[in-house]
């Protein structure tokens, strides 16, 4: 079933409201005796995003981030469930919704290379119906704003990767959308361009634009997003503020213990220490790293060291739980 069921009443104040959304891709292999493969890209996604919010969606490759962004921006029809964006159903009201949202799919593709950046924007300005009298002014302003003022009349084939990404951004914003979908906007950018893009995103947020951001980069999500959802194998496994997610995975303190030849009993003893909520081990050649998530403020590093007698080589340190830790905990916990 596609579209909003009659029993579903979305939150009036939501910019995005998603209920039990699924999306299945079917692909056919072979010619005479073809085999159809079904891939569940989204499996019952529920989501609520407030107006003016910068919401981040994190997930590994193939987790369903881009699929969700495309469904919400009317480029894919969901297999079942419902999704409303700015109060409009993404399937039934797609035509009415499109002028109000912007979509920035990053990467090298998606632009007409043989004409200038300005011509690309002119074309899309006309497809969006931007008033003729405003078109040229808006294009020049937008080119300036994204830092392409001097390169606007160059052919896109002469642009660097970063410049193309800026042009994608300009196109997505030209019609002044209320809600912007940014699909991995800094992927492949050099650090300077990526920083400029993040600065630009913050400025948009200050102007009241609701932003739905998908990204691979933890620091980017942590730096920009007010709330973050982690998607894994087509399901949202957690959705909260970074602080909320820290609490969810077991505390904002992380201990790392490096050593050799730990016995299972020793690991069990450490896990049983008061305040330890999670223990993960990683091998680095002969060396083993134990990572602990710690809820209690009372647990001290030396108490952990004391729980592992007979290991004079131990290196024990504490750090704040990073979003990357949270992400890995959530993604690795998700069963197949």
């Amino acid at each position: 079933m596609v579209g909003a069921p009659s029993s579903f009443v979305p939150m009036v104040d939501s910019a995005i409201s998603v209920r039990q959304l699924t999306r299945v891709y079917s692909s056919r292999k072979g010619f005479l005796f073809s085999e159809v493969t079904r891939t569940e890209a989204l499996r019952g996604v529920d989501l609520e995003i407030a107006p003016g919010e910068l919401f981040g969606l994190l997930g590994p490759n193939g987790a369903g981030k881009t699929t969700l962004a495309k469904v919400l921006s009317t480029l894919l029809i969901p297999t079942s469930g419902s999704a409303r964006v700015l109060g409009l159903d993404v399937v039934r009201d797609a035509q009415r919704l499109r002028p109000r949202i912007g979509l920035v799919l990053g990467g090298e593709r998606g632009l007409y290379y043989r004409v200038s950046g300005r011509e690309n924007l002119r074309y899309f300005a006309d497809l969006y119906g931007i008033p003729r009298g405003e078109r040229e002014g808006r294009i020049s302003d937008m080119l300036e704003r994204v830092g392409l003022g001097a390169a606007g009349d160059q052919r896109v084939e002469e642009y660097s990767r970063g410049m193309k990404q800026k042009l994608h951004l300009a196109r997505g914003l030209l019609h002044q959308p209320e809600l912007l979908f940014l699909d991995e906007p800094t992927i492949g950018l050099d650090p300077k361009s990526a920083r400029e893009t993040r600065k630009f995103v913050r400025a948009l947020l200050a102007e009241g634009v609701t932003i739905f951001l998908t990204t691979h980069y933890m620091f980017e999500a942590e730096e920009l997003c007010q709330r973050i959802a982690v998607i894994s194998k087509g399901k949202i496994v957690a959705s909260d503020t970074v602080a909320g997610l820290r609490h969810l995975v077991g505390g904002d303190r992380t201990f790392e213990i490096d050593g050799y030849g730990f016995e299972d009993a020793e690991l069990a003893r450490v896990k049983a220490l008061p305040g330890v909520s999670r223990l993960v081990t990683e091998e680095f050649g002969p060396r083993l790293r134990i990572t602990l998530r710690v809820r209690s403020p009372e647990l001290e590093l030396d108490r952990v060291a004391k729980a592992l007698p007979g290991h004079p080589e131990l290196e024990v340190r504490e750090r704040r739980t990073a979003l990357e830790d949270i992400y890995l905990d959530l993604v690795e916990e998700e069963p197949n």
């Binding site: 921006s73 009317t74 480029l75 035509q95 499109r98 002028p99 979509l103 799919l105 990467g107 593709r109 998606g110 632009l111 007409y112 290379y113 899309f124 497809l127 969006y128 119906g129 196109r171």
Partner: peptide, 13 residues
């Protein structure tokens, strides 16, 4: 090939 079909279809036209 250029990947412009998606942004074009995402417009209201």
């Amino acid at each position: 090939e250029l990947g412009t079909l998606e942004p074009t279809l995402s417009t209201p036209t």
